[in-house]
């Protein structure tokens, strides 16, 4: 038990360390801003004085380590500075959008995780049959499709041709839950199609891997039904890799929303990030990147810890 806590502590420390290094990288990106770029942001007519004032606003005129510490303190306390484009507080811009993005990601996960588990179990149960081949072909193709392709096909079929769903998911805070779910169904379906393939393949692989072991052979020889072998004998031992893959894919979901949000004009953090990139709004881009990176690292950390907890062999390396 003590050993387990020690390993988990190590992983958390490693995660914090990574977060620290990533924050250093994100903060120091501004250092790369060459003079002509500041000119490009401000426009052709910028005088040297306005450029100097702009650099002071970004804080580039002060020593780097002091600026980094201030930025870090600001990020931790929720004061992320002001947007360059419209002088608004970044925390105001980010707040509602972050919850929208998490809502969309959570919605997609709520469909994708059970679906991929069931499909993976069925494919393992009926392995090497037509069903298995069909699912395999389907997942291989859906992995290969760009997100926006899937999104536009869904829009074309379900929004434009059939007219069942809105092609644009404009949600606002005053909508009730069912209306909100209805409007975000198409983006959630897109994300589901993108991540289900990977999760399902890993579920199938994890279970089939175990089916070769002796205790499964034993269970089968004593006449246990195939479905019971998979659910009660193989699945408990396959949870580790499966949960690991689920956490990794959730991390992907949170970052992968960027493109889906742009397609569906969904007011989330990804949309804000892309808008700010094209406006060259450096402080907003920094804040959004830090949030995305933080969530991503956190979910990867969870995946890591889960795989340690469910596989005691990892506690004793070598």
């Amino acid at each position: 038990m003590l050993n387990l806590l020690k390993v988990i502590g190590q992983r958390i420390a490693l995660g914090l360390m990574t977060l620290f290094v990533v924050s250093l990288i994100i903060a120091s990106i501004v250092e790369l801003l060459p003079g002509d770029i500041t000119q490009a942001i401000l426009g052709q007519s910028a005088t040297p004085e306005t450029v100097a004032a702009f650099r002071a606003e970004l804080g580039i005129d002060r020593p780097a380590h002091i600026r980094y510490l201030e930025w870090l303190k600001g990020m931790a306390t929720g004061d992320m500075g002001k947007s360059l484009a419209n002088k608004r507080e970044i925390s105001d811009l980010v707040g509602a959008r972050l919850s929208n993005t998490l809502f969309l990601g959570g919605f997609a996960a709520a469909i994708a995780v059970p679906l991929s588990l069931i499909l993976g179990l069925l494919a393992a149960l009926y392995r090497n049959t037509i069903f298995d081949r069909g699912v395999n072909l389907f997942t291989l193709t859906s992995i290969s499709f760009p997100e926006f392709f899937v999104a536009y096909i869904l829009i074309l079929l379900l929004a434009v041709k059939a007219g069942w769903f809105p092609g644009i998911s404009n949600v606002s805070t005053d909508l009730n839950l069912s209306e909100k779910l209805f409007r975000t169904l198409l983006p959630a379906m897109t994300l589901t199609l993108v991540v289900v393939a990977h999760m399902m393949r890993m579920t199938r692989a994890a279970i089939i891997n175990l089916l070769a072991s002796d205790y499964i052979e034993m269970a089968r020889l004593k006449g246990v039904r195939p479905i019971r072998v998979i659910l009660y004998h193989a699945l408990p031992n396959a949870w580790g890799p499966i949960v690991n893959v689920i956490a990794l894919n959730l991390a992907y979901l949170v970052v992968g929303v960027v493109i889906v949000e742009v397609v569906f004009v969904y007011p989330g953090l990804g949309q804000l990030l892309v808008d700010s990139v094209s406006k060259r709004d450096v402080p907003v881009v920094q804040a959004c990147s830090m949030i995305f990176a933080g969530v991503y690292i956190l979910l990867n950390l969870v995946a890591d810890i889960v795989s340690v907890v469910t596989n005691p062999r990892l506690l004793h390396p070598r």
């Binding site: 990574t18 990106i29 970052v255 700010s276 881009v285 920094q286 959004c288 995305f292």
Partner: peptide, 15 residues
């Protein structure tokens, strides 16, 4: 550990 799309967006903003 850095999500690549986010990292690419960040670099492309600056450069």
């Amino acid at each position: 550990a850095i999500p690549s799309l986010v990292f690419a967006l960040l670099i492309l903003t600056v450069l």
